[in-house]
């Protein structure tokens, strides 16, 4: 494959409440910042991820285009998914060889509606959505299955939440949340700190190929493998104690050997345990040093931010090989794995 790297990453200072900005106003400074950081103002391809249900009106991505400077007209596309999949689309486009750069962005405000209920709209319309089952309740089903299957104690979840919040407090972009204390269940076995917080935010990444990447930055984060896989939709058709689609995506992305840091799209504490298993990440691998989604979850950008945060470890010289993960759907239905390295691979 053609070598392609993450060369720039920008994100908002995410907020836990509505700061009075429209989605486009959230995004615009991020685009301005990433153009300034790279010195690139026209990109070979632009791709974004967003979700109309966050504001309850169609065509979020149309307004967002105002922030990009799409004049003269640009080569552009959009996925109604987390922007990690927009990055995947851009990476595929860069493989053709006609273009050298791509801008990817995602944005989301979960402060405007009850996101766990919005999530219900994305479930099977005949058997699941009419039940009104929400995202947290589904995640709790998976947590229960995992805890019982492995004999893991619920206190382990609180440790994960505490580590995430500590990471978030060290991250200027994340929410600064207190250490989790005693709390009643939100949906047993999950407690409020096991659930990603309400967050508004946006993020952008610039990808560049080959020489262009080396021209733009000193340490590009070369994508050595990227892949995504799905599972059946109905939770009742699946083994919820593991994540076979994550395992498969990682294998297709060239495996996880040598990974030092992993940024995982864990919207619930127990998901870190399931994903660590699926990705064969040993105890030595630092997971979500940024705090992860449990410290900031601007949906539709959260997965893309994982790629950006992981790449930043390479750009900053603190890691040589990193992994980023993004997920979508109920109970980790669909998973994307992106492995990056400071060394350009031969492939």
């Amino acid at each position: 494959m053609r070598p392609v790297a993450v060369v720039a990453f920008a994100q908002t200072r995410h907020t836990g409440e509505d700061a009075g900005l429209s989605e486009t106003e959230l995004l615009a400074p991020v685009i301005t910042e990433i153009k300034r950081a790279t010195g690139v103002t026209r990109f070979g391809f632009t791709c974004s991820g967003s979700n109309d249900y966050l504001a309850g009106a169609p065509f979020s991505f149309v307004s967002a285009l105002d922030a990009v400077g799409a004049w003269p007209p640009i080569s552009e596309s959009h996925v109604e998914m987390d922007a990690a999949w927009a990055l995947y689309e851009a990476w595929v486009k860069l493989q053709h060889g006609e273009i050298d750069t791509a801008l990817v962005y995602g944005f989301g405000k979960t402060s405007q509606a009850a996101y766990p209920e919005v999530f219900t709209q994305g479930l099977d319309p005949y058997y699941l959505a009419p039940l009104g089952v929400d995202q947290v309740s589904l995640a709790a089903l998976q947590a229960r299955a995992y805890l019982e299957h492995t004999g893991t104690d619920e206190r382990r979840l609180q440790e994960i939440a505490a580590k995430a919040r500590a990471g978030g407090r060290d991250n200027p972009s994340a929410l600064h949340l207190d250490d989790p204390g005693e709390a009643d269940y939100e949906v047993a076995p999950l407690r409020p700190h096991d659930v990603a917080p309400v967050t508004d935010g946006a993020a952008a990444i610039v990808l560049a190929a080959g020489e262009r990447a080396r021209d733009l930055v000193e340490r590009p984060a070369w994508i050595t493998g990227i892949d995504h896989r799905s599972e059946p939709h109905q939770p009742g058709f699946r083994d919820l104690t593991c994540s076979p689609s994550t395992r498969l995506a990682a294998a297709k992305a060239g495996g996880t050997g040598g990974v030092e840091v992993a940024e995982l799209h864990t919207q619930f504490s127990h998901e870190e345990l399931i994903l660590r298993d699926a990705l064969d990440l040993g105890d030595g691998v630092a997971v979500n040093p940024s705090g992860g989604p449990l410290a900031a979850n601007p949906v539709m950008a959260t997965g893309l931010i994982r790629i950006g945060e992981a790449a930043a470890r390479i750009a900053g010289g603190t890691a040589g090989r990193v992994l980023a993960h993004a997920t979508s759907g109920p109970c980790l239905q669909q998973n994307l794995v992106c492995v990056m390295s400071g060394e350009q691979s031969d492939g």
Binding site: D18, S22, E25, A55, S111, Q112
Partner: peptide, 11 residues
């Protein structure tokens, strides 16, 4: 679905 929307600063 119920929303609490703001128009944004410019609007």
């Amino acid at each position: 679905l119920e929303y609490r929307l703001q128009g944004g600063r410019a609007l």
